[in-house]
Design a binder for these strands. Structure first.
Lengths: 169, 169
DNA sequence: TTTGGCATGTAATCCGTTACATGATTAG
DNA sequence: CTAATCATGTAACGGATTACATGCCAAA
């Protein structure tokens, strides 16, 4: 994030939330200690901004930090199984009334539609903002991933709801 | 899992792996202590099987355990943002050569195709096994979720690869 | 006989969230 | 004036993986 612009820890969190928040989140409890550690390692540096009386620490990425980022970006991302509580509750739904999984899936569908709307709005917004072509493509790609994933999820909900409602008769 | 049949901790892990392994995994380091804790709480009970000289602990679910399971199954699953390393590496790909995200996505696509094949085979297998209708629907639903998700992911890879390869010229 | 699967567990470590704690600045 | 947002941090806790440690049993 610091490659986009230098900022405070607080600011970093907002930026993360508003750009990649739908697939990556950070808490202050992790962010602030991480910044301290990164500065010790020479990967970021902070400038103390003492306008007024408040001390703000504005962080920037260093040359070594950028180098480290590049080497991280080049490493193949490893796929790891993410636990899915909804699917778990569907898999063992024989234990409860069919109304239960139906309710869970209906809720999940409604939730997915809300989140899809958010992503679609973001897509419109980045269209209007002037970003360099390459950066635009990459941002577009991440949003598109969310859109396609949510659309698939909504279709899944529909398919399963049809089946379960039929067998609930 | 113990509602399906009583088993040892070791066995539980295999069962988890082969049925819901693509969306939920457990390590021994968590499983064994968990079984001890659950037994203390009266949610499972173990029978010591001392055939031969080895001591095996075969766990079963208790009435209270089943009650607890039911109440858990009825609670709405909460959606939480899962961190996505691939998307992170795409988002910041302006920092590296376009060949890098292309390679990552190509790998991810190949990986998704392999995992899709596994799920499709599982779908065939559960078709041939005689499970009660309701249980079949639920198992089918979880597999179907994986299939649709992976298909969407593969389509995403294709879309993005087209764009990136065009801009790489 | 030796390899692979069955079987159980502990310890170290890491990752991450939530709660706690404090206080300045700004907009309505 | 007062609520929201900016701003920084620590401590407690929980969840999870990995490495360590041990040893039986069956099949090739």
């Amino acid at each position: 994030m610091l490659t986009l612009q230098s900022m405070t820890g607080y600011n970093l969190r907002s930026k993360i939330e508003e750009t990649i928040g739908y697939f990556w989140q950070e808490s202050f409890g992790q962010l602030y200690p991480a910044l301290v550690r990164l500065e010790k390692e020479g990967l970021v540096k902070s400038q103390t901004d003492s306008t007024g009386e408040r001390t703000r620490y504005v962080y920037s990425i260093t040359r070594q930090g950028r180098a480290k980022l590049h080497s991280w970006l080049e490493q193949s991302p490893v796929h790891h199984v993410e636990r899915n509580e909804l699917l778990m509750k569907i898999f063992f739904a024989t234990e409860v009334d069919v109304a239960t999984p139906i309710a869970h899936i209906s809720e999940s569908r409604a939730d997915a539609i809300e989140r899809l709307k958010v992503l679609q709005n973001m897509s419109l917004v980045i269209n209007n903002e002037l970003i360099d072509k390459r950066g635009y493509d990459y941002y577009w790609a991440t949003l598109r991933n969310g859109e396609l994933g949510l659309e698939a999820h909504i279709r899944w909900c529909d398919e399963v709801l049809v089946r379960l409602k039929a067998s609930a008769l």
